[in-house]
Simulated scan of single mutants.
Amino acid sequence: MTVPLSILDLATIGAGESAAESLQGSVELARLAEAAGYRRIWYAEHHNSASIASSAPAVLIAHIAQHTSTIRLGAGGVMLPNHAPLTVAEQFGTLATLHPGRIDLGLGRAPGTDQNTLRALRRDAHSADSFPQDVQELRGYLSSTSLIPGVDAIPGKGTNVPLYILGSSLFGARLAAALGLPYSFASHFAPNALEDAVALYRREFRPSDQLDRPYVIAAANVVAADSEEDAQRQFLALKRRWVRMFLGRGRSFTDEEVDQILASAAGRTIEHNLKYTAVGTPSAIREYLTGFADHAGADELIVAHQTAAVVDRLRSAQLTADALGLPIRR
């Protein structure tokens, strides 16, 4: 595989683990990724989820940056409807000032949470309607030309933190193309529109100061293990966790109940959403990701090592790097 490989770290809190243990695992994963040759690591903004510790990406990025030295770090992404663009520009402008040349800013239009939590964030359901305008306002703050007279992001102004549009539909593809920004498709959980979105983005792309040609990042899940049996065990645990996260609605399911759900129509939806998942030993992972990069027409792949236990995520990341022959950093 010739395209770069990156990591989307969801900072999963496994069963019996604390948020502190999950975040320490993110530090260990970043150190491993830096040494193993991954291009970048992104952290996604989620709220009110008992199994995800990345609710504050800018804070997490700052911490990880202190424990690494070369790997790019960023948000994949900040859910812009939850925030004022000026605040995001100040946060990521500060990161870019402290860690020049290492910071990315991926932007999503979804709230990354439920409606009750959205209200707790002091936002409303219509916040996403202004996403295109908010992206341009944020872009102005990070450049030297603020769109709001007399208002600058300090730090932030002139840092030109690279922006990426995240999406799982044609909306994000069209916006990224119109603004001349890189486009990252969330195929690791929303596979349906991948091919159509990438085709539209490439067809409608207009060059910008940041980017002169289209650049597509496609996401996939990876469960790499030393044996096929262990990989399949971890993948089943992942599917069970997804059932509890997305279908549990506050209920506590036994594994037997979860497996019954997986065999139902609702469970088949979970299976479909995990369509782009590489599972197996290193040779199988290499074959899958090489084929997926071609299928997606991707310039870069970003993979989520989604197993719940930190030790399994670290092993999956190392096996994947070894299988693909990533350029080891010395």
Rank of each mutant, 00 (worst) to 15 (best):
Leu5Ser: 03
Thr12Trp: 14
Gly14Ala: 14
Leu23Arg: 10
Gln24Thr: 12
Trp42Pro: 04
Tyr43Gln: 11
His47Arg: 08
Ile52Trp: 11
Val59Ile: 14
Gln66Val: 01
Ile71Ser: 05
Gly74Pro: 02
Gly76Trp: 07
Leu80Lys: 02
His83Ala: 01
Leu86Gly: 05
Leu95Ser: 00
Pro100His: 07
Ala110Val: 10
Asp114Lys: 10
Gln115Asn: 12
Arg122Leu: 08
Gln133Glu: 15
Asp134Arg: 13
Leu138Phe: 04
Leu138Ile: 06
Gly140Ser: 06
Pro155Arg: 08
Tyr164Asp: 03
Gly167Ala: 07
Gly180Thr: 04
Leu181Ser: 00
Ala186Arg: 06
Phe189Met: 07
Pro191Ser: 01
Asn192Asp: 14
Ala197Lys: 11
Ser208Ile: 04
Asn221Arg: 15
Val222Asp: 10
Glu228Met: 05
Arg233Ile: 03
Arg251Phe: 01
Ser252His: 15
Ser252Val: 14
Gln260Arg: 15
Gly267Lys: 10
Glu271Pro: 00
Tyr276Met: 08
Val279Gln: 07
Gly280Asp: 06
Pro282Ile: 07
Ala284Gln: 15
Ile285Phe: 10
Phe292Lys: 09
Gly297Trp: 10
Ala298Asn: 04
Ala304Asp: 09
His305Arg: 11
Ala308Tyr: 10
Ala308Leu: 13
Ala309Arg: 15
Leu324Arg: 05
Leu326Ser: 01
Leu326Gly: 01
Ile328Asp: 01
